[in-house]
Amino acid sequence: MSKEREPLFSAKNRKLITNPLHVDNPITVQVLGICSALAVTAKLKPSFVMMLSVIAVLTLANVIISILRNGIPPRIRIIVMLTVIASLVILVDQVLKAFVYDVSKQLSVFVGLIITNCIIMGRLEAFASANKPWPSLLDGFGNALGYGWVLIAVGFTRELFGSGTLWDYQIIPQAFYDIGYQNNGFMILPPMALIVVGIIIWIQRARSPQLIEEN
């Protein structure tokens, strides 16, 4: 190819990371990965763990599929992608179980959630299967990060108001409870996660009106 090589962090490549954080956010704009966002955000800590796992799996899976992209027959592409994701996750789980059992106990909950996280499948299908490995890596990383910050925001809100703690440390002082403050039990139920995400969407779109849908 005679075309000049693109610099590693060209403007186009940087956009792959920054776009998913805001205007192309996987949760609030692309509507991907909602189930797991509801399941893990009752507390801050699991939200954070989930973010790290998704960063690792999505980046890796994006690169693998991008390398394989020219050989995958379109008719069986879904199975191939899912097999790659599932084997990756199971392999990591097995290794953790053998060497760092404590960590694996913490993570075992997330194994199923990561395999079925549509954000991973969505990015493989929409981006990695048509792009080169390096942009795919950036895209995977950016999307996982965009997914992560919403998770952290929801986890923060729900833990603070639902349990009065953050990262399991008591934040709301005992004095508040003494004068009649009560934790909002609704906050830790899954429906409230939906409503909190709805409010995040509201704030986000109020600040960037180009995202507003027609109806």
């Binding site: 084997s87 199971i90 392999l91 097995q94 290794v95 179980k97 053998a98 059992y101």
Partner: peptide
């Protein structure tokens, strides 16, 4: 091949970890 060899090789360590747990 990858998954079952991983499962087979790692099994003794996993079982010890489970017993300890």
């Amino acid at each position: 091949a990858v998954l079952s060899s991983a499962a087979t090789f790692l099994k003794p360590m996993q079982q010890r970890n489970q017993a300890v747990d």
